[in-house]
């Protein structure tokens, strides 16, 4: 059963879209597509040219490494592929459905149109992706600091020798 109101809520609940107004999220939802896939369906392969991104409305997705190993499982409300909005280039891993899943897909061309028109929704999404990247950056720096202390006790010369380029 399709439930647009719940889907718009799921979009708004994701931190990439958190700054959007409800009406903007509803418009964005309509600009995307609903896609339903059986278990084991590949959404994209590693190396595919990035085009758009996906938000999980029901079911779950798996991120799969080159050796077929499971790198991560993503559930309802989570997104995959949004870095493709920032960087053109190949997908970094394969993503497939774990079970029957419903996803909301926003294509790269729809997103480009938003940016080209100067639509604040496009900028808001980019800022959301940016906030997420900042959060990851800070987490990496924090862990780097902790590990650096553990290894060397933090003498400056030793730290430089580690090549910790933050």
């Amino acid at each position: 059963m399709s439930d647009p109101r719940r889907y718009v809520e799921l979009i708004l609940a994701n931190r990439i879209f958190a700054a959007l107004e409800i009406s903007d999220a509803a418009a964005l939802y309509k600009a995307g597509e609903l896609l339903k896939y059986p278990p084991g369906h590949t959404l994209f392969h590693q190396g595919d040219e990035a085009d758009g991104f996906f938000l999980i409305l029901s079911g779950s997705l798996t991120v799969i490494g080159t050796g077929g190993e499971k790198l991560a499982t993503l559930g309802v409300g989570e997104t995959v592929g949004e870095m493709g909005l920032v960087m053109a280039g190949p997908r970094s891993a394969r993503v497939a459905t774990e079970e029957t899943s419903l996803v909301w897909y926003l294509s790269g061309s729809v997103f480009e149109d938003l940016l080209q028109q100067g639509d604040p929704i496009g900028t808001s999404i980019l800022r959301g992706v940016g906030r997420d990247m900042c959060h990851r950056f800070r987490k990496v720096v924090d862990e780097g600091e902790r590990l650096t202390i553990e290894i060397k006790g933090g003498a400056r010369s030793d730290l430089e020798a580690l090549g910790w380029d933050f």
Partner: peptide, 19 residues
Amino acid sequence: LRAMLRCLALQLERVNAAL
């Protein structure tokens, strides 16, 4: 903004590799 995020993505790649 997107150009700046691309720079940030490269920095993130670098710190990730260092980590």
